[in-house]
């Protein structure tokens, strides 16, 4: 663990990313404490600029606090990013593992299915899915999962293909271990590093997709999110720049931070880089 941290911390920007991400997570976790009111709560002071009428980052057209929206929206964005990624990784690992391990017909069938999903542009596909289901937090998570898992499946398949004929796997076969146990207990731990890296980057993508959907009016109208704030404020950009500028900055630095952390993880977990030391 110590050596991992040493390798990770060698990448200064990754540490910065981790710090920013930590701040965002902290903000999300205390959102309910610093802004106990519903972020949708209207007030009598619409379109107040930053610092005016006690609104740190201004208020929107029906007087909702932009700062409160950002704090509560952080929770939504992170949660959606995390859940969608976990679900996508889960499905992707299963598809990839079976395809790579068994090969042949199983591989063909599973990979053709994966390709069907990959041929559709992911954001358009996500819009379509949310439009078919009703816009809600569940349908957004499902849509992001559905468009994200094929990349994981591809990656895991490649790793399994490379590992399945290695000596330690052969040894497991001779010991009489079952296929599922070999896959999950032996091969999977050995390809965890690239999965973690791709997973971390997928969180960032998921946050962007969620914001994009909310921006297009396909978010859950009951849940505050950054994308919703931007979409709500966009038409007033010339009159009240702060409504969509601050959530935009929040998305920018969060996604940037997650990408930096992902890069750092890549450096720290990549065995080839490890040998170079």
């Amino acid at each position: 663990m110590n050596s991992f941290w040493n390798r990770f911390s060698r990448n200064k920007s990754a540490v910065l990313g981790l710090f920013i991400l930590g701040l965002v997570v902290f903000m999300a976790s205390i959102a309910g404490l610093i802004y106990p009111d519903d972020p949708f709560l209207y007030s009598r002071f619409p379109l107040s600029g930053p610092g005016v009428n006690g609104f740190l980052l201004g208020s929107d057209s029906i007087g909702r606090d932009v700062a409160s929206g950002i704090a509560h929206g952080a929770k939504t964005s992170l949660l959606i990013g995390l859940i969608a990624t976990l679900a996508a990784v889960f499905i992707g690992v299963i598809f990839g593992a079976f395809a790579g391990y068994y090969g042949g017909l199983v591989d063909d069938v599973l990979m053709r299915i994966t390709e069907v999903f990959q041929t559709i542009p992911s954001f358009v596909f996500a819009i379509l899915l949310v439009a078919i289901m009703k816009p809600s937090i569940e349908s957004v998570v499902i849509a992001i999962t559905v468009v994200s898992w094929p990349a994981v499946a591809r990656l895991v398949r490649g790793e399994f293909l490379a590992l399945k004929n290695r000596e330690f796997v052969q040894a497991c076969h001779t010991l009489g271990m079952g296929d599922v146990r070999i896959m999950m207990a032996e091969i999977l731990p050995n390809c965890l590093s690239p999965i973690i890296v791709i997973g971390s980057l997928m969180v960032a993508t998921a946050i962007l997709i969620e914001s994009g959907l909310a921006f297009l009016g396909l978010g859950d109208p009951n849940v505050m999110s950054w994308g919703f704030q931007i979409s709500d404020g966009r038409s007033m950009l010339r009159v009240a720049w702060w409504i969509c500028t601050f959530p935009g900055i929040a998305i920018l630095i969060t996604v940037l931070a997650i990408n930096l952390v992902g890069e750092g993880l890549n450096d720290a977990l990549n065995p080839r880089l490890r040998e170079r030391n």
């Binding site: 519903d38 209207y42 029906i62 009703k134 709500d232």
Partner: peptide, 26 residues
């Protein structure tokens, strides 16, 4: 969005009189 905003305002007001409404926008 005007109508969405209107709905969100009414949702808050109804909350104050004890009617818990969920918004649906299709």
């Amino acid at each position: 969005e005007d109508w969405k905003r209107g709905g969100q305002y009414i949702q808050q007001v109804l909350g104050e009189i004890g009617i818990d409404v969920e918004l649906r926008y299709e």
